[in-house]
């Protein structure tokens, strides 16, 4: 199965301070381990919500809202797409990630509809 991992780092996602070199090195080491295990399909980091926009749909009307957005806990700061055999496997991998804060969400991607 394919899962999307969303990093909801809370306030950190909008923090002006970039991650420390040590934190980046730890992350890269972990990501490399995942790649070597054939787990990672894709990975990405997102710019802060101050540089983002939202579009709200209401019938024919479209409203554009400029960032930053207030609900920092729900803001996604980065993502992974993983290929795993079960949610449990994703959970075991995620627990090994070198983070000391934030919330990470695991969602299964709908695939092969009709098979």
């Amino acid at each position: 199965m394919r899962v999307l991992i969303m990093a909801k780092e809370g306030e950190q996602s909008d923090a002006a301070t970039p991650p420390t070199p040590e934190a980046m090195a730890d992350y890269q080491k972990f990501n490399e381990e995942l790649v070597k295990a054939g787990v990672v399909l894709e990975a990405g980091r997102l710019y802060p919500s101050s540089q983002s926009k939202r579009v709200r749909f209401d019938g024919k009307k479209r409203t554009v809202i400029d960032g930053p957005f207030a609900e920092t806990k729900e803001l996604v700061a980065g993502y992974w797409l993983w290929q795993v055999r079960s949610i449990d496997e994703a959970l075991e991998w995620l627990k090994r990630a070198p983070y000391d804060g934030g919330t990470f969400e695991i969602r299964e991607v709908v695939e092969y509809e009709g098979i």
């Binding site: 079960s86 449990d88 496997e89």
Partner: peptide, 10 residues
């Protein structure tokens, strides 16, 4: 057991 199964796979 679920965790062990996943760890075994890894």
């Amino acid at each position: 057991h679920h965790a062990i199964e996943a760890i075994w796979r890894i």
